[in-house]
Design a protein around this nucleic acid. Structure first.
Lengths: 249, 249
DNA sequence: GCAATTTTACGCAATTTTGCGCACACTGTT
DNA sequence: AACAGTGTGCGCAAAATTGCGTAAAATTGC
């Protein structure tokens, strides 16, 4: 196995699991622990992961210790998010044209994507940069860049969306009820969500259990217009809906 | 087998698998490892793949491990760049629609921009994020994201450009001669440069003195089609041109 | 605290990979 | 026919990588 390939797989495992031990890596890649340690040294030096006693972690999880408020949101329901996204990633096939919504939920999905033959399109510049850095084919919709969300909005974005027909797409959401449908706090973003869903064949909304029974400000589609992939303490009334998929934690 | 055919098949294998070993290639193409290595040298030099110990990888997957070239380029001629960009930033007025080329030279320009009333458009996602974070109005052209340069290329980018008419624009460049004009190493990037220049009223090329008397692979416009802002040890023959502006260091 | 366990760092040998010189084949020119 | 120029394959020494053993360092359990 090539050194570069090993490095890529190590980083991939760290990204996927958050943390890995030296022994895990050595077993998984069938390489001596000495080599794993040398690799971790290099990767740590290149700022691709953080070497810690016994193994390695992602750079993000290292911030977790210092930053409370910002990463709080990030770390909240992290396990549920991971389970949801691990499942969602398996839905992507080699011939898909995949739309990826902006937002932190879909950001977690990026860590689980493995289908390199598929083509990805997103309105989030930060998502695009992550995917491109990992060697995926990724296209950015044009438009005005709002710094708060790092997503694109405006007439350019709308024009770009209208030229695409996605085979599969993934969206984050803030509120879900059967009556009010899928809702989001910002009208520009809601418009983009609505338009992209109209242009997508298979629609998946990724939502941990806390999103149920909440209504945010702007509705972007009906409750049953997408498959809702969820995880955690889902209220009983939602479990009977055909378009709700609950994955194990 | 023709050398060109071999090169094409090698690049194809790298693209497909992400990484290949020299032995793999030698077996697959039934060619000696010596020849494979010589081919890899050439292909690496032509930036069609990255040669690594034991084989080769795609440029994308490798970009992460080696940040040498990136930083290397970053620190080079920093003083000249700063002087050039400090001057260039003064050219932007409140009513301008400004085009910003991708690349490290223009990245330096970002640090000097002060005109918050103007609107900025760029094909570099990293430039856009920097500007947005600092509160500027910034629009991103759409298109496929190439991780090596973090710039956008492809039909989406071209379509987006055609809708704009910029009042002023700034470009980086790799080679400048009166005979061969302005040249760039990559044909996709060169095409974007050419198109954006056609859609811009006042054109400025930012180039430190080392760019003179060099010719890169692809020409994107004539020598006198833009004002060339430069600094450093400019060859005498260039100082007499009306479209060359030399700023003090 | 302190001992037991785990993890790490370092030296060394085996293996792999690389760079380079040289011989040979092929091509087009004089 | 002789010639230079280019591309290819092979052998060998230098360099890089890898795996293993062992002592030092860090962590854990009591």
């Amino acid at each position: 196995m090539l050194a570069e390939e090993r490095h890529a797989r190590i980083v991939e495992m760290v990204r996927r699991q958050g943390t890995v031990t030296v022994t895990e890596l050595a077993t998984a890649l069938d390489i001596s622990e000495s080599t794993i340690r040398r690799d971790l040294d290099k990767l740590d030096q290149a700022h691709r992961l953080l070497k810690v006693h016994g193994g390695a972690t992602t750079l993000e999880s290292a911030h977790l210790t210092r930053d409370l408020t910002l990463e709080e949101r990030h770390g909240l329901h992290a396990e549920e998010k991971r389970a949801i996204c691990a499942y969602a990633a398996t839905l992507v096939g080699p011939d898909d044209l995949v739309y990826l919504d902006a937002g932190s939920t879909v950001e977690e999905l990026l860590n689980h994507l493995t289908e390199r033959a598929a083509r990805y399109v997103t309105d989030s510049v930060s998502h695009a940069m992550k995917l491109a850095a990992r060697g995926f084919h990724v296209t950015v919709l044009g438009g005005e860049l709002k710094s708060a969300t790092e997503s694109l909005v405006g007439p350019d974005t709308i024009a770009a969306i209208s030229r695409y027909h996605f085979t599969i797409g993934f969206w984050g959401v803030n509120g879900i009820t059967p009556e009010n449908g899928l809702t989001s706090p910002e009208s520009n973003e809601a418009l983009i969500k609505q338009l992209t869903m109209e242009h997508t064949a298979r629609r998946y909304v990724l939502a941990d259990a806390t999103k149920f029974d909440n209504t945010s400000l702007v509705r972007f589609d009906a409750f049953d217009s997408a498959t809702i992939v969820t995880c955690g303490d889902v209220p009983e009334k939602y479990k009977s809906f055909e378009n709700v998929v609950e994955v194990a934690r």
